[in-house]
Nucleic acid binder design. Sequence first.
DNA 1: GAACAGCATTCCTAAATAAGGAACACCCTT
DNA 2: AAGGGTGTTCCTTATTTAGGAATGCTGTTC
Lengths: 264, 264
Amino acid sequence: MTGNLSLERGLAVLDLLKDIDEPIGVRDIARRLDQSAAAVQRILNTLAEHGYVEQIAESRRYRLGHSVLALARYILRKDRLVGLAEAELQALAAEGCFNAFLAVRRDDRGLYLLTVQSKSPVVIRSSPGESFPLHSTALGKALLMELSAEAIIEILGQAPLERLTPRTVTEISKLVVQIHGSESVGYTTSIDENFAGLIAVGAPVRDASGAIVAGISVAYPRSVGPLVEIAEVGETVMAAATRISASLGYRDARSQHKDPSHAA
Amino acid sequence: MTGNLSLERGLAVLDLLKDIDEPIGVRDIARRLDQSAAAVQRILNTLAEHGYVEQIAESRRYRLGHSVLALARYILRKDRLVGLAEAELQALAAEGCFNAFLAVRRDDRGLYLLTVQSKSPVVIRSSPGESFPLHSTALGKALLMELSAEAIIEILGQAPLERLTPRTVTEISKLVVQIHGSESVGYTTSIDENFAGLIAVGAPVRDASGAIVAGISVAYPRSVGPLVEIAEVGETVMAAATRISASLGYRDARSQHKDPSHAA
DNA sequence: GAACAGCATTCCTAAATAAGGAACACCCTT
DNA sequence: AAGGGTGTTCCTTATTTAGGAATGCTGTTC
């Protein structure tokens, strides 16, 4: 898997700007990426020509440019997965007063593709393009379903699992057990594990080959918990996920849950 | 203005994928960009590592990857202009049953940053990241305000002005006169010029230096036109644009004297 | 107010890097 | 079974980049 190193360096600049809120100077970028100022200057010139970065007129510092929206539009308007999921998420948000999410895995993090806020006063502020931890969220666990213990450790084992609340599972072996246990029921949960007072229920989305390519989840405040049976929410979320999977061409041999390994 | 040619080629691939709806193969990209398949392969490998492109498993073709959303999030959530304009656009959409837009100029096209749909049944389907012609839209003309005739010709003169409706202004000299004429009233209009039956009114947004950095507009069906005086809509739009400009630090010498802070 | 320290930006040449033809493996269709 | 299509990799040439030094600018400090 050989690549293009110059392009790599340019993308590193983009990725850096993405993670920095404040505009940043050429030399500052060069320092952080361990490159010469001249090299970064040339990279910024090229990125600026395409509108992917912009220079603040007076401070001469750089930030991401507005043209990146044109790229995002492709995903939000042309991507099949996003298009199919949107109606399902909105139905979930409307029916159950849930916040609803669609995400994919990106290395050791989840990446929100769609976020639909509930009509209820309690709203979870997340937006498409935002990333989130896999180990503490229902959606993250759904994205890790049907992976072997080795594969999960390969993905999450590089860094210690961050303790976000007292109930976060920080032992990877326990997390593996939890995820593997969820495969028989078909949905995942996170109760106070990512944010105190928040309950989330997730389920995986499959493409035509049967591979898990995305996940959806709903989240709601713990306070309404007693009113709703988690298992019931799980069935609702699973049903929505299954409909999305079916639209993507997934045909489950057994229309019930369980045993997805032999999808023809 | 020297740049980085390898990065340039990589961005060309991104820009191509952005404009193509269907996934595309390596050799096909190479043909369109007049490069070798091997070079494009290396570029795609690097882009894929960052998640900016994805390969369809079975067809082995490539399309834009979901990570581009992470870049867009920066603009939609961190950009000052977008943040300030959002409330104003929503107010415009709610009060007047208008579709409301925020955009910047990108070379010879406009680029929507925000689009807010009206509550009325007639909705204009546009989304952030979409581009639009400057010469036939109120928003486009607002983005060209206060430019000299030479500058406007420099921007739009490369290609003939496309006739989108019978009322589109396709003579650049007439367009210049129209734009310059709008500067004294402060707002721009497009009546059936971009899309038959559609009326739009736009106004420029300025930063602290007084330069026009963006524009806003509202659009509504011609059928409700007789009910609303365009001049009145113009004042409403201008007022919203002025508020955004003020939030960006613009202090107009000619505007109403409120001026609480000291200007040096 | 002058020297200074920081900045973005440009030039030039050594040296790292990418390009491209050819080759390989893998579908399809014929 | 053959042919044309695909994505992908290898290897050498030579294109292209990197980086120190230089420039001009801005704001700060002594």
